[in-house]
Structure formats: C-alpha cells, structure tokens
C-alpha cells in the first residue's frame, strides 16, 4: 500500500449538488472547494428528524447533497440579515446512528466533518452509495470557512434547537479547503495515516509498564482507537 507521502493532493472546485462523476474522481488527500448550497446538521437536527420523526422543514434532496457537521458563529446585522463570521466542524463519529438515515432518506452524498468515521461504517454506507467524507482542515480554521459563506439562505428550527443546533442552509463560494478522507470506494485516509503513525508510537511504549490501578472500559493497546 502506498503511503501519505505519495498522495497527489489534487485541487477540485465542485458545484453543489455534486454529481456522482464529481465524487468518483476524488482521491484520498485531494483538496476540495465548493460553490452552491450546503446545509448543517448535528445531533439536535438528527434527533428531531429521526427520533421524533418530525417532517423535514424543507425537501433536503432538492436543495443540495452536501452536509456539514458544524454550527456557526453568526450574528445579525442592522437589517436583520444573518452574517456568518466563522464555522468549524464537530467530531463526526458520534453521528453513526443517524447518518445513514440522512444519506439513504435525503440524498446526502457528501459529508463534511471532523475526524472521519470508522472503516466499517465507510464500507457499509459510503461505498454502497458512492458517497465521500471530507475532513475540514486543522480543524480550527473557522475564519477561512466563514469567508467562504456568502449568505444564509434559510435557517430552520432555530427557536427549538438554538443557534448551535439549528439547520442552517448556507450559500457558499470557493468554500474550503476540505481534505478527502473517504473516497467513493470506501477507502480512508486515516486508515493509511494510522498505519504510519502506529509504527513510531508503538516503539515509545517499550519499557513503560501499565499503571498500577486499572479502570473498567479502558483500552491499553496504543494501536487501538478510543471509539
């Protein structure tokens, strides 16, 4: 298997909704920017849609197929228009339960987030649907992403969910950069990266004993992950 040093990191500028052909040509480590519409979603929205089974406030599939696990730092100007100052992703692995429902039921094929998802999850859902997972960079480069948001098309369930959990629909231009973490074939950049970093990390543990006091539920192998 080739390593991260061999990645080409090609740059792509996509317009939403992203076509299957757009997504198929993305390779691990490529850098992506968007023009068009994206919508935000995290646990507040997912609980409302999938646990409470509330009717969606808008036909998501006709809007865009790109979602972003985030919420904005946003204010209103004097004429009451929303102005997004910055956006930053929140960790995506917590959304395993609901994400397939969003992808299968609402046409989402491109997920922007933080940290990626488990390999098995990619194989079960992303590969099946030809979908991709894009990581934000850093992750805290919110000012750059804020600059790419040119307007707020709509915000739904603001009163019930609050600013941080509401569903925001952003108009975006040159919105990025995002790194391809899972391609449409279910391959993961993090699986590649973990294989590389575990080599050095493992060596450093040699000669360091386990702590005297154990705790239930801990992992002890440095190659394991915490989720």
């Amino acid at each position: 298997m080739s390593g991260t040093a061999d990645l080409e990191m090609k740059e792509h500028h996509l317009t939403t909704p992203a076509t299957p052909e757009d997504l198929a040509k993305l390779e691990l480590g490529d850098v992506v920017y968007f023009d068009g519409l994206i919508f935000t979603g995290r646990i507040g929205l997912y609980k409302k849609l999938f646990d409470e089974k509330a009717p969606p406030p808008v036909d998501i599939a006709s809007l865009t197929n790109v979602t972003f696990h985030c919420s904005p730092a946003v204010g209103q100007n004097e004429s009451g228009e929303w102005e997004v100052a910055a956006v930053t992703a929140t960790a995506s692995f917590r959304f395993e339960k609901h994400l397939p429902l969003l992808m299968d039921g609402h046409g989402v094929r491109c997920v922007i987030g933080k940290g990626g998802m488990a390999q098995q999850f990619y194989e079960d859902h992303f590969k099946r649907l030809g979908a991709v997972f894009l990581n934000t960079v850093g992750y805290g480069i919110g000012a750059q992403y804020g600059r790419g948001i040119t307007g707020v098309k709509d915000v739904y369930w603001l009163d019930e969910l609050g600013i941080a959990q509401a569903m925001w629909v952003f108009e975006v231009k040159n919105f990025g950069p995002f790194l391809v973490e899972c391609d449409a074939r279910g391959n993961s950049l993090y699986q590649m990266a973990l294989a590389e970093t575990n080599v050095e990390l493992g060596k450093l543990y040699e000669g360091l004993p386990l702590p005297t006091l154990k705790r239930m539920g801990e992992v002890h192998n440095p190659e394991d992950e915490v989720f």
């Binding site: 730092a73 910055a86 930053t88 805290g140 000012a143």
Partner: peptide, 15 residues
C-alpha cells in the same frame, strides 16, 4: 487562518 481572522476580524474558530 490566523491571518484571515485578524484581517477580516472574524473569530479564528467558530467553536
């Protein structure tokens, strides 16, 4: 990003 935040007076991270 540090530069964009200062130049455009945006929070450097939205969280």
């Amino acid at each position: 990003n540090y530069k964009v935040a200062v130049d455009e007076q945006r929070p450097m991270c939205a969280d």
